[in-house]
Write a protein that binds this DNA or RNA. Structure first.
Lengths: 205, 205
DNA sequence: CTTCAAAATTGAATGAACTCAATCTTTTTC
DNA sequence: GAAAAAGATTGAGTTCATTCAATTTTGAAG
């Protein structure tokens, strides 16, 4: 079934991603040259371009894997949300933030966000975009779950609200990664202020 | 008072920005080389780097001037907002969107947004960031004005709400510039859905 | 008006992402 | 299992953005 060619292909992809991941995390984005990644992956620079369209797309592939994990971790919260609306939202978002920074530095997030805007047609940019949509959906699902429990007004559209909440948490995250000196605690605080206000607005009376 | 040196400096800055602006608008960002800008501005490539830290910063300088205009145009709406909350918000945001696209293509906006995230320490990146804050403030001012008129609940924090509304309109704009094929009308529609929902939530009963 | 110091300009040199024609490997065909 | 076709790999070459040592221009002081 899986011919030699196919296996080699999968293996090379894996090696390139692993080499890039290790080096980006250790040195940051700019100092790592395609040649370095290629050398560590035991291929030539040209081959990297056979597998990924740009250096940036390699980073986006790596970041996308992290975002997948973030979404997985979020499922637990949506499946069984805390009693209070503000606390439920905060729990989910805290999850996102904490998980996101576990493996990727602010610098790598800046690069990834920039790349996804700058080159939205690239294959992994599109995957990244799709993951943003899935995050939005997950927030919407949480809103819907709370609505089903009667904790949020029934006359509201959970998917529009999910979009608003996501825009807010995403914007706060981007401001956070742009400010190298800002501690994670500040991000939590800033977002909580917004989340609390939204919870107040949405709450069933 | 203004010595020759100072005058030449101002003039060179102006020439560089003018040359860059013309060429970026005509050809897009990538095809324009620093050498081209320098040639049109009658200076050498090296001199461009004496005035701006990177090619990207030249673009951000140009985009910042547009954003200033957008803010100026917004003042009129805040000074005398339409009667209805949803309409007032929509009017302000429509202004932003329409004005933004008058002179800059989606591609240039993508580059600018990407640059502001990627290199947040650059001089014009910081100016751009400050302008984002001023936009947020302007939205907050509108909320406060409507609140003063008794059209928005008094127990809400206008500055937090302004932040939420700005995050939403900004995210929608970024999605719009990322999708080369998306017509402006879709952006208006998408944002209006969110704005209407927020207006519903904030409205004094 | 010279002379000197400070500030700016210049363009050749550097370095890294990306391309592509030549070469090599794998698969298919007979 | 040999030959041809299809698919991959390779690394030298190209193109810019950016840097920097040498040079030129401006302003100040005597």
């Amino acid at each position: 079934m899986t011919g030699l060619r196919e296996r080699q292909k999968a293996d090379r992809t894996r090696r390139i991603l692993e080499a890039a991941s290790t080096q980006f995390r250790a040195q940051g984005y700019d100092p790592v040259r395609i040649e370095d990644i290629a050398a560590a992956a035991d291929v030539s620079a040209g081959t990297c371009y056979n597998y990924f369209s740009t250096k940036g797309d390699i980073l986006l592939a790596i970041v996308s894997m992290e975002v997948e994990e973030v979404i997985d971790a979020g499922r637990a919260v949506v499946a069984d949300p805390p009693a209070d609306v503000a606390i439920a939202l905060d729990r989910l978002i805290r999850n996102y933030y904490d998980h996101s920074l576990q493996y990727l530095s602010k610098e790598l997030w800046r690069r990834a966000v920039a790349l996804s805007v700058e080159a939205p047609e690239t294959p992994f940019s599109q995957r990244y975009l799709a993951l943003d949509s899935r995050l939005t959906e997950q927030v919407s699902d949480l809103v819907a779950a709370l609505q089903a429990r009667g904790q949020i007004r029934r006359d509201l559209d959970s998917s529009v609200l999910g979009g608003i909440i996501f825009a807010q948490l995403n914007q706060a995250f981007i401001e956070f990664v742009k400010a190298e000196a800002m501690p994670l605690e500040d991000l939590h605080r800033i977002n909580q202020r917004a989340t609390d206000q939204l919870a107040l607005l949405m709450a069933a009376r």
